[in-house]
Simulated assay, not measured.
Amino acid sequence: MKTKILLAEDDVDFGMILKQYLELEDFEVVWFQNPADIIPVLSADFTFHIGILDIMMPNIDGFSLAKMILKEKTDFPILFLTAKNQKIDRLTGLKIGADDYIAKPCDPEELILRIKNILKRVQPATPENIISIGSYQLDTEKLLLSHTAGNIRLTIREQQLLLHLLKHNKKAIKRDDILDSLWETNDYFTGRSLDVFISRLRKYLSNDPEIKIQSLRGIGFEVDFPTP
C-alpha cells in the first residue's frame, strides 16, 4: 500500500512540480490548491498518512488548517512548507503539533528524507519476525499466520514454502526449484506432497481475495501477494 500524502499548496507551479516528484518516489498524492476543499474530507473517510501544508495560503493559512485537521485527527503527522524561514513560524508550528517544517524552495531529496523520517517516528515499528502478506501477518518465530478471521499455526514446512513463495512474489516459480530447495529431492511422491501444501496455503490465505497462488501448466506456480 502506497503512502498517501495530503498536499495543500496554492502555488500552481510549485504544487505541480512537488506532486510529480513525490509520485516519482512512489507516494500517492492528493493535491488541494484551495485549503477550504480539505474541510469536507475531514468528516469523510480520511485515509491520508501525512500532510504537507503550505503556511501562506489564501482564505485558510496552513496553521489554521493544521488546527482543524488535528482537532479531528489528533495523531496526524504534518510537515509545514514556508517561504519564510522565521523563528515565529517554527514556534507556532511546534505549538500546534507539527512534526517538521521545511523552507521553500526546498531540495526535493531533503523533503523526501524528512517525510520518511516522520513516518518512521509516527508509525509503530514492525518486529523483524513479523511479515505482512496482504491482510495477513506472519510471525515467523511463532509460525503463526494471523488474520481478523482467525489465526492458523503453520507447520515448519508450510512456513518454509510460504516464505519461498513470498521471496519470488509476482514471478513464475518452477516446481523443480521448489522441490530442490525445500525437499532437496524431486520425485513423484515429493511432487504430490508439494501439491498438498500448496492447497493448504491457498485455503489458509483464502480470506484475502487479492492473494493468488496460480498453477502454471508445465512450469510450476505464479504468486501475487499484496505487500505494503
Rank of each mutant, 00 (worst) to 15 (best):
residue 155 T to R: 11
residue 166 L to Q: 11
residue 198 I to T: 08
residue 161 L to F: 00
residue 180 D to C: 03
residue 130 I to V: 14
residue 14 F to D: 07
residue 176 D to T: 12
residue 89 D to Y: 12
residue 200 R to Q: 10
residue 144 L to A: 04
residue 14 F to R: 07
residue 167 K to L: 02
residue 215 S to C: 02
residue 74 T to P: 05
residue 38 I to E: 01
residue 20 Q to W: 12
residue 136 Y to R: 05
residue 61 D to A: 02
residue 96 I to W: 09
residue 88 I to Y: 10
residue 207 N to S: 10
residue 163 L to P: 04
residue 87 K to N: 08
residue 126 T to K: 15
residue 212 K to C: 02
residue 78 I to C: 02
residue 35 P to N: 05
residue 92 T to E: 14
residue 22 L to A: 02
residue 168 H to T: 06
residue 167 K to Q: 09
residue 116 K to C: 01
residue 142 K to A: 11
residue 163 L to D: 06
residue 148 T to S: 13
residue 56 M to N: 13
residue 112 I to T: 10
residue 200 R to G: 00
residue 198 I to A: 01
residue 23 E to V: 09
residue 225 F to T: 01
residue 3 T to L: 07
residue 179 L to T: 05
residue 120 K to Y: 15
residue 109 E to H: 06
residue 151 N to E: 15
residue 159 Q to E: 11
residue 127 P to G: 01
residue 99 D to R: 12
residue 20 Q to F: 11
residue 168 H to R: 07
residue 37 D to S: 12
residue 54 D to C: 00
residue 127 P to H: 10
residue 206 S to D: 13
residue 89 D to W: 05
residue 26 D to V: 00
residue 49 H to W: 09
residue 32 F to D: 01
residue 160 Q to D: 11
residue 79 L to M: 13
residue 197 F to C: 06
residue 9 E to I: 06
residue 69 I to G: 00
residue 214 Q to H: 07
residue 46 F to Q: 07
residue 13 D to I: 12
residue 12 V to C: 07
residue 70 L to I: 05
residue 164 H to A: 03
residue 136 Y to W: 05
residue 163 L to G: 04
residue 180 D to R: 13
residue 93 G to S: 09
residue 25 E to G: 04
residue 81 L to Y: 08
residue 7 L to T: 08
residue 131 I to M: 07
residue 61 D to M: 05
residue 150 G to D: 12
residue 39 I to D: 02
residue 101 Y to L: 08
residue 150 G to M: 12
residue 70 L to Q: 15
residue 112 I to C: 06
residue 53 L to P: 01
residue 31 W to F: 14
residue 121 R to F: 07
residue 13 D to H: 15
residue 3 T to M: 03
residue 33 Q to P: 01
residue 186 N to H: 15
residue 183 W to Y: 10
residue 163 L to S: 07
residue 30 V to D: 13
residue 53 L to W: 05
residue 188 Y to D: 06
residue 21 Y to T: 09
residue 133 I to S: 05
residue 30 V to P: 00
residue 147 H to G: 02
residue 110 E to D: 14
residue 176 D to N: 12
residue 5 I to W: 05
residue 21 Y to L: 06
residue 63 F to P: 04
residue 94 L to E: 14
residue 24 L to F: 11
residue 63 F to S: 10
residue 156 I to H: 12
residue 173 I to E: 06
residue 12 V to W: 15
residue 1 M to Q: 14
residue 172 A to Q: 14
residue 188 Y to E: 10
residue 16 M to Q: 14
residue 21 Y to M: 08
residue 17 I to W: 03
residue 34 N to D: 15
residue 148 T to N: 08
residue 124 P to T: 07
residue 3 T to G: 03
residue 228 P to A: 03
